[in-house]
Simulated assay, not measured.
Amino acid sequence: MRVLVAEDHAVLARTVARGLRRASMAVDLAATGDEAERMCLLTDYDVLVLDRDLPVLTGDEVCRRLRELENPPRILMLTAAGEIADKVYGLEELGADDYLAKPFDFAELVARIQVLYRRAPKSPPVVLRHEGIRMDRTRREVLVHGRPVDLTPKEFAVLHALLASRGGPVSHRDLIRTVWDENLPPRTSAVRATVSRLRAKLGGPDTIAADTGRGYRLTP
């Protein structure tokens, strides 16, 4: 799951991002409303955690503009304005999908983001298959020739990206963008190490091919 946190309070933004990453989410940060809008136009975020009181462009205006997109991210308003009238305005007038007032319990924030992710429209198939590999995204279960395989969250996400490509290559950059986030250096060895561990768990080095200049793909 990829999440954008639009929050101008730097300490709070870093704290929220760190916690969400521990919950196996890929998280980017935006400090102004115009930056949040620009990032949402460039990247398909699953959920946007949006502070209403952003500089340059308010969170209210960002929400209104994003609602005009064909496939906007799910928007969770995160704000100090916690009166009932504020919540009703955010949900009904601005078009937010959820509303959480500050201060908040972090476990509740994680739960609300996960609920919004599950409610996202046009979800890909729950069960993905390739040769002897079967992935159930709802149960977070992977079987290889009927044998359960225990994957870490990153390994699961990489395998999902490879299965979703239907045998086509997935580039190193795309894996960083969808499985990790902008916090990861582009020359990191994390992708290669994760793919290596995934190969071993799927049955060996021949299960995932590395196409020079194109990326990784599942072998026939």
Rank of each mutant, 00 (worst) to 15 (best):
1 M>F: 02
4 L>T: 05
8 D>Y: 02
9 H>K: 06
11 V>R: 13
15 T>Y: 07
15 T>R: 13
15 T>D: 11
16 V>A: 07
19 G>M: 10
20 L>A: 07
21 R>N: 09
21 R>T: 06
21 R>K: 14
22 R>F: 01
30 A>W: 10
30 A>H: 08
30 A>T: 08
31 A>R: 10
34 D>W: 04
35 E>L: 07
36 A>L: 03
37 E>D: 02
39 M>V: 01
40 C>L: 06
45 Y>E: 03
45 Y>N: 03
47 V>I: 04
52 R>D: 00
52 R>H: 02
54 L>T: 03
55 P>Q: 08
61 E>M: 09
63 C>T: 13
63 C>V: 11
63 C>D: 03
66 L>M: 13
67 R>W: 04
68 E>D: 10
68 E>P: 00
71 N>T: 13
72 P>C: 10
76 L>V: 09
76 L>S: 07
76 L>N: 03
82 G>M: 11
82 G>V: 09
83 E>M: 12
84 I>S: 05
86 D>A: 14
93 E>V: 12
94 L>P: 07
94 L>V: 08
95 G>C: 11
96 A>D: 06
98 D>M: 02
99 Y>S: 07
99 Y>V: 06
101 A>L: 06
102 K>I: 11
105 D>W: 00
105 D>P: 00
107 A>L: 09
108 E>L: 14
109 L>M: 10
113 I>R: 04
113 I>P: 05
115 V>Y: 02
118 R>P: 00
122 K>Y: 11
123 S>D: 06
127 V>F: 03
127 V>R: 15
129 R>P: 05
131 E>T: 08
135 M>C: 07
136 D>L: 09
136 D>P: 05
141 E>F: 05
141 E>C: 04
145 H>A: 15
146 G>L: 04
147 R>G: 00
147 R>Q: 13
148 P>R: 05
149 V>K: 06
149 V>I: 14
150 D>C: 02
150 D>L: 08
152 T>Q: 08
152 T>P: 01
154 K>R: 13
156 F>Y: 15
156 F>R: 12
158 V>A: 11
161 A>Q: 15
166 R>I: 04
166 R>E: 15
167 G>S: 13
167 G>C: 11
169 P>V: 15
169 P>E: 12
169 P>L: 03
170 V>H: 12
171 S>G: 15
172 H>N: 15
173 R>L: 13
173 R>S: 15
173 R>F: 12
177 R>S: 09
179 V>H: 06
180 W>Y: 15
181 D>T: 09
182 E>Q: 14
183 N>P: 01
186 P>A: 15
187 R>G: 12
189 S>P: 02
192 R>V: 14
192 R>N: 10
192 R>M: 12
193 A>I: 15
193 A>L: 14
195 V>P: 04
198 L>T: 11
198 L>P: 04
199 R>A: 10
203 G>M: 09
205 P>R: 14
206 D>N: 12
206 D>G: 06
211 D>S: 05
213 G>N: 07
215 G>V: 13
216 Y>G: 06
217 R>D: 11
217 R>C: 11
218 L>G: 11
220 P>M: 09
